[in-house]
């Protein structure tokens, strides 16, 4: 077959539409250009979703707050020892959100706390996704005994109350930031795994997977090139929703006193307020603002997640 010259002996096949692409020099580079175009088409659809746009704007504001905000808060503002305010001061022009029992500005606490809350949210989501996608794909793709085992594990994690598991783990591992992240990840991957497994099961039966095998591709090749790209959209929409859930989980753990005592997070602020009796004493400024922040951030991510889901999943269904 080497002796053959590739010159055409028949007329070129007609293409319906001569795609307005410049003949590429490096196919892979233009492949990326092509992907960028797909992304911009996606953005166009996303922009049409009002819910998605509101969520996105809120999300960006929160992320900005978490990244930039803490730089504007002097360290002494949130330090127990050097706080300048009087304890339990209600909101005034100077202390916009009042002070806590150490005389720290609640506003400063919230700004600083946003960073930890979001870090925990994102990091725990990464853990969730890696675990969920890995276990889901392994379970769906390999099938058989692997699937039976992993599926049993997934179901086990789905049915046990996560909070009980989290409490046990937190008390064993100790309440550090990293442990909190791991705990949230470990207790919440199961839903993702189930979703991914279902998708992997259907993708695995597609003839193009068989084609890859007939070409000589091994399992890893098939997973990386065929299963994962087709499971990705499901994971993606799920990810954004998981961030919201992780932030909520962090709040819950902190509220229960299982948060990292050395770092300030929104859940932690509320927990301290509770312990100082803020609820009975009527120090509303200490509890409501962090609560509202949590509600808003969760709302923002949820709105984005639903908007993504609406765009991505009908496409999946249509195919």
């Amino acid at each position: 077959m080497q002796t053959l010259d590739p010159t055409p002996s028949e007329p070129p096949v007609l293409v319906g539409e001569p795609a307005n692409l410049v003949p590429p020099k490096s196919p892979r580079r233009i492949g990326w250009a092509r992907r960028r175009r797909a992304l911009s088409a996606f953005w166009k659809t996303y922009r049409r979703s009002r819910m998605g746009m509101v969520g996105l704007v809120m999300m960006i504001l929160f992320i900005l707050l978490a990244v930039v905000g803490p730089f504007f808060v002097p360290a002494k503002d949130v330090s127990v020892a050097f706080a300048t305010g009087k304890p339990f001061q209600p909101p005034t022009v100077h202390w916009l959100l009042g002070t806590d029992n150490f005389g720290r500005s609640v506003l400063s606490l919230i700004v600083v706390g946003s960073r930890i809350s979001l870090i925990v949210g994102f990091a725990a989501t990464v853990v969730t996704m890696v675990l969920g996608a890995g276990i889901g794909i392994a379970s769906g793709f390999y099938g058989g005994k692997t699937d039976t085992l992993l599926n049993a594990l997934t179901n086990w994690f789905l049915v046990i109350p996560w909070i009980a598991l989290a409490i046990v783990m937190a008390s064993i591992l100790g309440p550090t930031l990293l442990n909190i992240i791991l705990i949230i990840g470990i207790t919440s991957w199961a839903g993702t795994a189930r979703l991914v497994r279902a998708q992997a099961l259907t993708v695995k039966e597609r003839p193009y997977v068989e084609r890859a095998r007939a070409l000589g591709g091994g399992d890893l090749h098939t997973i990386a090139h065929h299963i994962l790209p087709n499971v990705m959209p499901v994971i993606f929409a799920n990810t954004v929703l998981t961030v919201a859930l992780s932030i909520l989980a962090e709040t819950t753990l902190s509220l229960l006193g299982l948060g990292d005592p050395n770092s300030i997070s929104w859940g932690g602020i509320i927990n301290e307020a509770f312990q100082a009796g803020a609820l009975s004493a009527g120090y509303w400024w200490w509890i409501i603002p962090p609560g509202v922040m949590i509600v808003l951030v969760v709302l923002a991510f949820t709105m984005c997640g639903y908007a993504l889901d609406e765009i991505i999943n009908p496409r999946l269904r249509a195919r």
Partner: peptide
């Protein structure tokens, strides 16, 4: 038959079959 059926939005002029 070589080629493909025409795109309904861009039907060739004259006899629609002439390109094939």
């Amino acid at each position: 038959l070589g080629g493909d059926p025409p795109d309904p939005q861009q039907i060739p002029s004259g006899c629609p079959f002439h390109p094939r």
